[in-house]
């Protein structure tokens, strides 16, 4: 695998583990302490931040040409896929509460930065998946 594939795999693994652990924690806490205290399980999402260390762990590939036009095209498509997904998520999360709760309801202002936390995670996840789909999930392609 090249460096980009390894970094993409680390993001996919850390974000997936963080998301799964959060869901499990929220489910367990819901039965024990109920809502909204069960939302403390969202703290496990911090594990996803460990993926940010991967550019330091996986060093730049050796060789004269480290990034060619194909790599640039793959990165650009992956970035567009990630950006498009996070944009769609922001739009859906902004519109769905309006239809569910109705125009006379009010929400906690803490949800606004949380929307972007979710958008950021989804962007990194989709970007990494797009990288792996284009390069290959495990093969040695450059």
């Amino acid at each position: 695998m090249n460096r980009v594939q390894k970094i993409a795999w680390s993001f996919v693994v850390t974000i997936s583990v963080a998301f799964l652990l959060s869901c499990i924690a929220i489910a367990i806490l819901y039965f024990k302490v109920g809502m909204p205290r069960a939302l403390a399980g969202l703290g496990f999402l911090g594990i996803a931040g460990l993926g940010g260390f991967s550019p330091l762990i996986f060093h730049t590939d050796k060789g004269k040409v480290t990034l060619d036009e194909r790599d640039r095209l793959i990165n650009r498509r992956a970035a567009l896929a990630g950006f498009g997904t996070s944009y769609l998520l922001v739009g859906l999360v902004c519109m769905i509460p309006f239809f569910i709760l109705g125009p006379k309801a009010s929400i906690s202002v803490i949800w606004l930065p949380n929307i972007f936390g979710g958008a950021g995670l989804s962007m990194f996840f989709v970007h990494s998946v797009a990288i792996l789909v284009q390069y290959g999930w495990g093969r040695k392609k450059t």
Binding site: C94, M95, F98, S106, V109, I110, L112, P113, I115, F116
Partner: peptide
Amino acid sequence: FVIVCMTTWFIYGPKGTISVNVLPLT
């Protein structure tokens, strides 16, 4: 989107509430 959401959070503080109409207007 980012500026509107974060500005609202800073103005109202973490314990504030806003009308749900702010979201579709954003």
